[in-house]
Structure formats: structure tokens, C-alpha cells
């Protein structure tokens, strides 16, 4: 049973090694970093759940769990970049509805998967550019800009359709994106498409953030914008990039969502923004910018996802879900604060 829960975590560990700080061995990593603390809490949770529920560690449940968190994770990748770059995007919740509705309408009109996907991504780019333009061009706080976009996009999603845009195109490939499986891999099982997409997005951006100049710029701009500016980095350009990436990834997750729902719902994504931002911050990113890793985000998303999965597997009243989520956030932030003090960080 334990082997399966470890496998759940394997997705994160290769990149985890890549971001390991030079001075840290595995033990220090475990106890001295937010990622390490999250990993310990997650492992403990997996052990407890696999003892309590016979199905928890089953292949079926692991993949259901991973499919469930794929939407949060894809958006959280963009959000991590943005928060590291010292901005935030609250509009991702309404994006799930807005992009979903627009993409489904396009799919119905064209019966072409790529046209639908292109429109979704275009919508993501546009929303990202609008957010960036208002934040940087008009110098309005991104919290307010994207909060305003959150309400405006929800309003537009309501305007574009009375309720939900039903699937009138019946494209097989579309269905596969949401609930299909990539070919059977021996020893692992049938991997759902959303999980594959998430893994690709995660690895690509983990490499971008840790191995490329752009990645270093994101940290520099978030950590000390003035210094970054002086050393010739375009703060404007880097932040716009982060906004657009967040918009596009939110659109990708919206596309997978409509494939999973088989309809574009104008009421989709309520509270999604807090779920995503909560996970990113729990993963060790700071709204003050310059801090945070994708491995931390992944572990936080896994932790929250596993928790919600476990609550239902054990048949616990769903009233507990919120309370337990809140407590887990509090415990993780408390452990992080203690670790920082132990390490001597402020």
C-alpha cells in the first residue's frame, strides 16, 4: 500500500532534487524547508489513510486523486510564477467559467478540437494581458485588478450563456482530454490524460524556473524589483510574462474542466482562486515575492487534494472538509514559521 502512495509523490521528486539547496542533504531538506515539512505531513497522511481505507492506495483511487488535483495544479503552476514575481491573480476562478463557456461555444460552432483549444488559450492570453496592462500600465494593485476581473469575467460568463453550454459536437478527442487514459504502462496502470498534461506543464515550468535566465529573472523581479531594474531586467516584461502564463494555464485547466464536465458551466470555479492561491502560499511562496518553488506548490496541492479525497473515502461528513482544510493550513504555516526560526530566518 505504501508503495502506491510513494508513487504518488514521485511526480514531484525529480524536480525536487533539482532545486535542492547546495548546503542541504536530504535530512536537512526534510526538516529545514517548507517542501520537506509538507512532504513529511503528506507522507504521514498517506500512511494514516492507507491504514484506515482499503481503497486509498488502490491504483484507481490514486489516479482519481491525481486527475482531481490536475486542474488546481496546472493553474497553481502559473500562480507560483506570478506570486514569486510579486503579483497575484484572483481572476483564475471566473476564468474557469468564462473560458469554459467560450471554448465550448467555439467547439460547438466549429467541431474542431484545435479551434476550441486555440480560442481558450487566446482568451487566457487576453485576460493575462489585460491583467498585466491594468496592473503595470495603470499602476493599480494586482489584487484589486484581478478581483475586479474576477467579478467582471463571472458577469460575462453569465451573459454569454443562460446556464451551461452543452456538448453538441461529440468529439471523441475532446472527451479523452477530460476522462480518457493514455496507453497502459506496465507496472503503473492506465494514466489519465489530465495527469499527463499536468506532469508536462509541471516539468516544463520547473525547468524554466530553475534552469533558465527567465526563471532567475522572475525571482529577481519578485525579490527586489529595483535591483532587478538597475541590473537591466525588464520588470515590466517579466511580470507581463507571468500574468500571461497564469492566464494561459488557467485557460488550459478550464479546457480540461469542460472536458471533464462535458459542458461549459457559467457557475464553474467558485472559490477556485482561493484554493489555488492557498496551495501556492502553503507551498512556501510568499506574497512579498521572490520566494517559492514549484515542488512546494505541488506538495501543497497534493496534501490538500489527498485530504479532501480521504475525507470522502472515510465517509466523514462533508462539513468537516472545510474545518480540516483550515487546520491543515494553520499547522503547515505554523511548522514553517517554527522551521524559519530554527534556521534563523526572519
Amino acid at each position: 500500500m505504501g508503495a502506491d502512495s510513494i508513487r504518488t509523490l514521485d511526480v514531484g521528486s525529480p524536480a525536487g532534487r533539482s532545486t535542492r539547496r547546495p548546503l542541504a542533504g536530504l535530512a536537512t531538506w526534510l526538516f529545514r524547508t517548507q517542501e520537506g515539512v509538507l512532504l513529511l505531513v503528506l507522507l504521514a497522511l498517506c500512511v494514516v489513510l492507507s491504514r484506515l481505507s482499503p481503497v486509498f492506495a488502490s491504483e484507481r483511487n490514486v489516479f482519481v486523486l491525481l486527475s482531481q488535483i490536475s486542474l488546481t495544479m496546472i493553474t497553481a503552476v502559473g500562480m507560483t510564477l506570478l506570486i514569486v514575481g510579486r503579483e497575484v491573480d484572483l481572476s483564475v476562478g471566473s476564468m474557469q467559467a468564462f473560458v469554459g463557456v467560450v471554448a465550448m461555444q467555439t467547439l460547438n460552432a466549429t467541431s474542431n478540437l484545435f479551434a476550441g483549444l486555440a480560442v481558450a488559450i487566446l482568451a487566457g492570453v487576453v485576460v493575462g494581458l489585460v491583467n498585466a496592462g491594468l496592473t503595470l500600465g495603470l499602476r493599480i494593485n494586482s489584487f484589486i485588478v484581478t478581483l475586479a476581473m474576477l467579478t467582471i469575467l463571472r458577469g460575462l460568463a453569465y451573459t454569454f450563456t443562460d446556464a451551461a453550454v452543452q456538448n453538441a459536437h461529440n468529439l471523441e478527442a475532446f472527451r479523452a482530454i477530460g476522462i480518457g487514459f493514455i496507453a497502459h504502462i506496465p507496472g503503473v496502470g492506465r494514466i489519465p490524460w489530465p495527469v499527463v498534461i499536468t506532469a508536462v506543464v509541471f516539468v516544463a515550468f520547473a525547468l524554466l524556473l530553475t534552469r533558465t535566465t527567465i526563471g532567475r529573472y522572475v525571482y529577481a523581479v519578485g525579490g527586489n524589483p529595483r535591483a532587478a531594474e538597475l541590473s537591466g531586467v525588464s520588470v515590466w516584461g517579466v511580470k507581463t510574462f507571468c500574468f500571461v502564463v497564469t492566464g494561459v494555464l488557467a485557460a488550459v485547466s478550464a479546457f480540461i474542466l469542460i472536458a471533464r464536465l462535458n459542458s461549459g458551466q457559467n457557475n464553474a470555479g467558485f472559490g477556485f482562486e482561493l484554493q489555488v492561491i492557498g496551495a501556492v502560499l502553503l507551498g512556501g511562496a510568499s506574497l512579498a515575492g521572490g520566494q517559492g518553488t514549484l515542488v512546494g506548490t505541488l506538495l501543497a496541492v497534493l496534501l490538500l487534494g489527498t485530504l479532501n479525497n480521504g475525507i470522502i473515502l472515510l465517509g466523514i461528513d462533508s462539513s468537516w472538509q472545510l474545518a480540516v482544510n483550515g487546520l491543515i493550513i494553520l499547522v503547515a504555516v505554523l511548522l514553517d514559521a517554527r522551521r524559519r526560526r530554527a534556521v534563523g530566518q526572519e
Binding site: 481505507s53 481503497v55 488502490s58 484507481r60 483511487n61 482519481v64 486523486l65 486527475s67 482531481q68 479532501n308 479525497n309 470522502i312 473515502l313 465517509g315 462533508s318
Partner: peptide, 8 residues
């Protein structure tokens, strides 16, 4: 939530 319940 149905996904989780159906697995269980």
C-alpha cells in the same frame, strides 16, 4: 466529490 465517493 462523486469521483471520490465512487472510488470508495
Amino acid at each position: 466529490v462523486s469521483n471520490d465517493a465512487l472510488t470508495a
